[in-house]
């Protein structure tokens, strides 16, 4: 039998899963802090704009969004199959295209900052 090409999508899924495990909770925490009266300086417009304006910041933000989106897209594909949706090829095309579109959008917004 031929070897599968799944490693492409699985590799991104695993990398994204690791990234999101480390940072998604703290990113949510960051935007929740203002509710309890703590305003992280980074969330002030000028600071965040400067961060996303620097190429290091751009690269970080792009990498995170890219990997996390792929992680979510791939796991969603598996999850839909687990819920009984059998049109796996169609699901795969849709979720990966959505992740790719999100990734491109992230690049576009970042380049406009």
């Amino acid at each position: 039998m031929a070897k599968s090409n799944k490693p492409i999508v699985w590799g991104l899924f695993a990398a994204g899963g690791t990234v999101t495990a480390f940072i998604t909770p703290v990113l949510v925490l960051l935007t929740l802090l203002p509710v309890v009266g703590v305003m992280p300086e980074l969330l002030v417009y000028d600071n965040l704009h400067a961060f996303a304006g620097h190429w290091v910041g751009k690269l970080l933000l792009f990498g995170v969004i890219f990997l996390v989106l792929w992680h979510a897209a791939h796991r969603l594909r598996i999850t839909l199959h687990d819920f009984g949706v059998r049109a796996d090829s169609a699901v795969a095309v849709i979720v990966y295209l959505a992740a790719a579109a999100g990734t491109l959008a992230a690049a576009y917004f970042l380049l406009r900052i």
Binding site: M1, A2, K3, S4, K6, W10, I78, D82
Partner: peptide
């Protein structure tokens, strides 16, 4: 062995 276990019927069906 990879011809079998790295195929579409192999390890990639594991979630």
């Amino acid at each position: 062995r990879q011809q079998e276990i790295a195929s579409g019927e192999g390890v990639w069906e594991c979630s």
